[in-house]
Every structure is written in structure tokens, then in C-alpha cells.
Design a protein around this nucleic acid. Structure first.
Length: 559
RNA sequence: GUCCUCGUAGUUAAAUGGAUAUAACAGGAGCCUUCUAAGCUCCGGUUCAAGGUUCGAUUCCUUGCGAGGACACCA
């Protein structure tokens, strides 16, 4: 509940739900009288007229105009009162919540596969996960960031095949940069994947590598350890660049033995079933589908490893475990969660899959690291960086590498988070580098504009003594009203685990600010009006910085 | 074939069952001797189809069409 809504409800003395009229000229607050009409047995229009006159009779100073239009009561608020309420409500805890009640929540994200390229989909997952974690922390949860990395399995076997086929190149790249090492591994993986599909003979060779990894075979161990370390180092650089970190790293290589053990134990207890030499969980009994947990060679599949992982997660005694993973795994998770309920009854109701929409390149075929048909995270970042640097070169301010980096990250993060996380994002490379309109740089721009003003008022306090002016400009009032909505945005982002609510809110706030900026000069104003406007932009800055922080975007002084 | 998602301006996205369906980009027209024009103001242009529930449907239900995903030994 935000300050303004609360004040309106208090003044009316009824617990009713409020909305906003379609056109600000009609008023600032709208009350739909459909429910009220039903309760009182009259038509909505009659209820609206009765309610409007009831409200008018209270003669509240906050209400400038109250009128019934059809089934709605529209209220025009007094700007001065709005200013007083909003500016007073912006304390240090503005927009934070206590609904989390310090409950522990595990957020699993990131999860790239070592020895495979880090592509756009991984970048989106990383950015989404970090922001979800921040939004939940902001709502009072104790968040533990966990990362589960697939350092064993067929993809590793394919990469190893590629590495050994290109052994000389592998040795050469050893003293190159982290980025070049990662590129080499990505290519080696694609090479191995192509070989796997090429002939039965090569397929068998790849499968042999898979068995060797599981057996800790000495002939591959050095290469395996080296390649794995290269990948992890590379990922670490990316995590830092996008302002994320992890509290715990889990590795598949530490899960398969325990996974196998658990599945075998519960096979005896009848949770799993043998079928065609494999061990399966019959999801079909529960309206789902069957899945293989241990293959006919006796090796655990991803499913079995996930069981061991769940055991590790549950040791943390979390209230919830959120898996931020692509939506193509929705059906998979349903089956695994169902199996987990049989094995670990305490997991019931705690495991959640937060499905991330696909990131598909517009006008291009689907990205696949298997075929090497991908845009890597690095390539995209470089593209955006070039674009930003070009714009900065045109501006009168000299190119500042630090600012360029921050604007680049802001542009990318915002593109990834502005749409509902579960929705597919048709990723347009052109649009991703856009720096105007609904974009990350647009948001940073208002921060730079505000700081530009504040820098010119060295000795003035943002919160000096002043009386709120008698006439509050329409642009000021709508900016104030927009500010008051920040807590609702952070609340729904936490409730739905969807940072896009914050992203959209910030964009609207920025629009509101830019209109204000155009209509209400700050430095030209004098006396109370100047002090009031300084206080107002100070609050906008504070709110903007907090909101951007929830998305994982750092602000700049100028741009 | 079975199951799961999803179909909104030219494009990308909004809209607890509520007013004239919002924005951004692209297109057209304006605004810099005035706090940063990465900005502001104005203009056109949209709910896949057919039924149903409802005072009221982009939203809920049914069918059709279209797109994507999952469906045994990959992760």
C-alpha cells in the first residue's frame, strides 16, 4: 500500500480498492463502484453519486475535486498535500518490505556448463537470477545464491573429444587470455558435437570420454582439470562484470555418486522402477511423463544428479528453492519435483521452477552451442560497447571508459529484464544496442541530469527548510504521484518473482521526470519553489538509484 | 500422436474481469543563446477466428487455426 492510497482510504473511512482514471485530466484517483453497488443493491452509477457526495461532505483538504462519472468516483488531489505526503514518506526503508520475514530462500541461477560457450541465453539467466535475488532481499528474505555447474556429462565428453583432436592448439592457448581460452573450448565443444553426429565410430569415442570422466581416468584428468579451471575463471569474470556473485557452487561431478546411491535405495523401496535396463520414475502415474534416472549403462542421468543436489539444498533448511532455468525444462521439473516428494517429503511445496523465456535472435535461426551457431555474451557486450562509445564520441564530453562500461551493462541488463521473465524475448541485436526510449541508458540519463543540477548547487542542502509552494505544477504532481508508486512495484516484483515490474516502473518514473525537467526549471526557480524542486529531484534520484540497484544496474555521474 | 506454454499497432512489449486497450521503436510534424536534445511536445496506426459465461472479456471456458516447447537412457 502506498502513502497516497493509504491517505485517501483513511480520509474516506472505507476500505475500498483504488485505481487511476485513464486520463489524468479526469483526476488522480478513481474508485470503481461495482462491488459497492452490489453490496448496497443499487446501480453502480447511483452508488458512485452517493459515494461522491459522501466524500465531498467530509471536506478533506487532500481532495481538490470529487466527481461521479458513470460508475466511477474520480478524485483530483491537491498538489500541495500530495507533495507533503510523498516527500515525508520517503525514508530509508521506502520501497522495502518485510513480507519475507527473514525466511531463507535459495535462488539457483547462472548455471552455465563449463567447456561450452557462454551465450546470450546464459547471460539472460544470470541477469534475471541476480535481479530476482535482489528483489527478494529487498522484500525481507534471506537469499542464498547458488550455482550448479555441469562439469560432467556428454557435453564435457564432446568437448574433450574436440580438445584431444586439437591437442596442439589446446597447448598453445594455455598462455593466452581467459577469453581466448573460453573461445577455444566453445569451438572444441562444437567440433566434438559435430563428430558425435558424424559416425558411430566417433560417437563411441565420445562416449568413451564420458566413461573416463566418471571413472576419473588418469589419461584425461590433467586436461579435464585444466579446461574446467579455464571455464570457471572465465565465468567468474562475467559474474563480476554483471555485479553478481554466488554463495555456494555445486558441481555435477560431486552429485553423481550420491545420486546413484539414492536412486538405488529408493528403487528398492519402489519409488523407481527398472525398465529396459534403465531405472525410471513413472511420472505417467501422476499425469506427467516417465523419465530415466539411471541409464542402462548404470550411469546417473541429470535427473539422478538433481536428486543429490536437492538433498544438498535441503540441508540448508530453506523455506523455498527457486530454480531459475529456461522454460523448456518446465515438464522436466514437474517430474523431478514429484519424485523428490517421494524421496524427501520435506521438499514438498518448497521446490519452484521459475521458467525463463527463450532468447531468440530475431530473423535468425535458434542459437545452439552444439552447432556453434551462437552469439556469445562477449560478442554482444562488445557490440553494445562499440555503439555506446560511438555515441559518446559525438557528445561534447570525452569518452570515459568507466561510464561506457556502466552504460553498456545498463543497456544489456535492461533489455533482458524489461519484459515478463517467463515470456520469450525476440532478441533484436539492433534494438539491444538502442540507447533511446525504453532503454537502460534512458534511465541512467535522468540520473546524470539530476546529478548535473545538484553539482551546480554546491552549498545548498537538498533538504533545506522550505514551505511547499501554493501552486504545485501538474508535472510536479504527477512526478510525486509516480514516486509514491515505487513500493507497489517492488512488492509485485517480489510476489511474482519478476523484476520486470521494477524495470517498467523505473521507465515510467523516468518519463515523468523528463516531462518535469522540460516544464519546471530548478536552477532558475527561487526561494521555496527552488528548495522544493531540489528536494523533489533528490527523492527521484534516490528512488531511481534504489530501483536500478534491484535490477543490477549501477548509475553514472554524467553521460 | 499425447501433454504444456503462447497468439495485442509495421516491430518489441503493457493492461487484479472494468472507463476511449497503454508505451517504446520505426514513420510524419515541431522544440536547443534557457539545469546534458541519449531529451520533450503533437500526429496517425492494434486484441488470430468463431462460439460461450458475464451488467461488462485482451483477461475465464469450448472449438478451430498458427507458433514454440516437452515426451527414455543429452543437460
Amino acid at each position: 500500500m502506498n502513502t497516497i492510497h493509504q491517505a485517501v482510504i483513511d480520509a474516506i473511512g472505507k476500505d475500498i480498492s483504488l485505481s487511476h482514471p485513464p486520463d489524468p485530466k479526469m483526476g488522480d484517483i478513481a474508485i470503481g463502484c461495482f462491488e459497492l453497488a452490489k453490496a448496497e443493491g443499487v446501480s453502480p452509477a447511483e452508488a458512485a453519486i452517493a459515494l461522491a457526495s459522501d466524500i465531498q461532505s467530509k471536506a478533506v483538504t487532500l481532495f481538490e475535486r470529487v466527481e461521479a462519472i458513470g460508475p466511477y468516483v474520480n478524485i483530483q488531489l491537491n498538489g500541495q498535500e500530495v507533495a507533503r505526503l510523498v516527500l515525508n514518506s520517503l525514508n530509508d526503508s521506502f520501497g522495502t518490505h518485510t513480507i519475507g520475514d527473514h525466511k531463507k530462500i535459495l535462488v539457483e541461477f547462472g548455471c552455465p556448463n563449463p567447456m561450452k560457450a557462454f551465450h546470450l541465453g546464459h547471460l539472460k539467466n544470470l541477469i534475471t537470477g541476480e535481479s530476482v535475488a535482489r528483489v527478494l532481499e529487498n522484500a525481507g528474505y534471506q537469499v542464498v545464491r547458488v550455482n550448479y555447474q555441469g562439469d560432467v556429462g556428454m557435453h564435457v565428453a564432446k568437448a574433450l573429444w574436440g580438445i584431444f583432436d586439437w591437442k596442439d592448439a589446446f597447448d598453445d592457448v594455455a598462455d593466452k587470455s581467459t577469453k581466448e581460452k573460453a573461445e577455444f573450448l566453445g569451438n572444441a565443444y562444437a567440433h566434438g558435437a559435430a563428430a558425435y553426429d558424424q559416425s558411430d565410430e566417433k560417437k563411441a569415442e565420445v562416449e568413451a570420454y564420458n566413461a573416463k570422466v566418471y571413472a576419473h581416468d588418469a589419461s584425461i584428468q590433467d586436461v579435464y582439470d585444466t579446461a574446467r579451471a579455464w571455464s570457471l575463471e572465465y565465468f567468474d569474470n562475467i559474474y563480476k562484470r554483471f555485479h553478481t556473485h554466488f554463495d555456494t557452487f555445486y558441481f555435477e561431478s560431486n552429485m553423481y555418486e550420491r545420486g546413484l546411491e539414492i536412486v538405488q535405495t529408493y528403487l528398492k523401496k519402489g519409488v523407481f522402477k527398472e525398465s529396459e535396463g534403465a531405472v525410471i520414475f513413472e511420472g505417467s502415474k501422476y499425469g506427467l511423463h516417465d523419465r530415466v534416472f539411471v541409464n542402462s549403462k548404470g550411469l546417473p542421468t541429470y535427473e539422478a544428479k538433481d536428486v543429490a543436489l536437492a538433498e544438498q539444498h535441503l540441508k540448508e533448511k530453506p523455506d523455498k528453492i527457486i530454480h531459475v532455468v529456461g522454460k523448456e525444462q518446465t515438464e522436466y521439473f514437474k517430474v523431478v519435483f514429484r519424485a523428490l516428494e517421494e524421496i524427501f517429503p520435506e521438499s514438498k511445496g518448497k521446490e519452484f521452477h521459475l521458467p525463463g523465456g527463450f532468447l531468440q535472435l530475431k530473423g535468425n535461426q535458434k542459437m545452439s552451442s552444439r552447432t556453434g551457431n551462437i552469439v556469445t555474451g562477449d560478442e554482444l557486450v562488445a557490440m553494445v560497447e562499440d555503439q555506446i562509445a560511438r555515441i559518446m564520441k559525438d557528445a561534447e564530453t570525452p569518452v570515459d571508459q568507466n561510464v561506457c562500461e556502466k552504460v553498456t551493462v545498463a543497456a544489456l541488463v535492461y533489455v533482458m529484464l524489461k519484459a515478463d521473465v517467463t515470456r520469450d524475448v525476440a532478441f533484436d541485436l539492433e534494438e539491444s544496442v538502442s540507447t533511446s526510449g525504453d532503454s537502460g541508458p534512458y534511465l541512467l540519463y535522468i540520473v546524470a541530469r539530476i546529478k548535473g543540477i545538484l553539482n551546480k548547487t554546491q552549498n545548498e542542502k537538498i533538504d533545506g527548510q522550505y514551505d511547499i509552494p501554493d501552486t504545485v505544477h501538474a508535472a510536479e504532481k504527477s512526478l510525486l504521484l509516480q514516486l509514491s508508486l515505487y513500493p507497489s512495484a517492488t512488492q509485485s516484483a517480489a510476489d511474482q518473482m519478476d523484476p520486470s515490474h521494477v524495470a517498467r516502473y523505473l521507465f515510467t518514473l523516468a518519463q515523468s521526470f523528463n516531462s518535469f525537467y522540460d516544464a519546471c526549471p530548478v536552477l532558475k526557480a527561487e526561494g521555496d519553489e527552488r528548495a522544493f524542486r531540489l528536494a523533489l529531484i533528490g527523492r527521484v534520484l534516490q528512488t531511481m538509484e534504489r530501483g536500478l540497484h534491484l535490477l543490477g544496474i549501477e548509475t553514472v555521474e554524467r553521460m
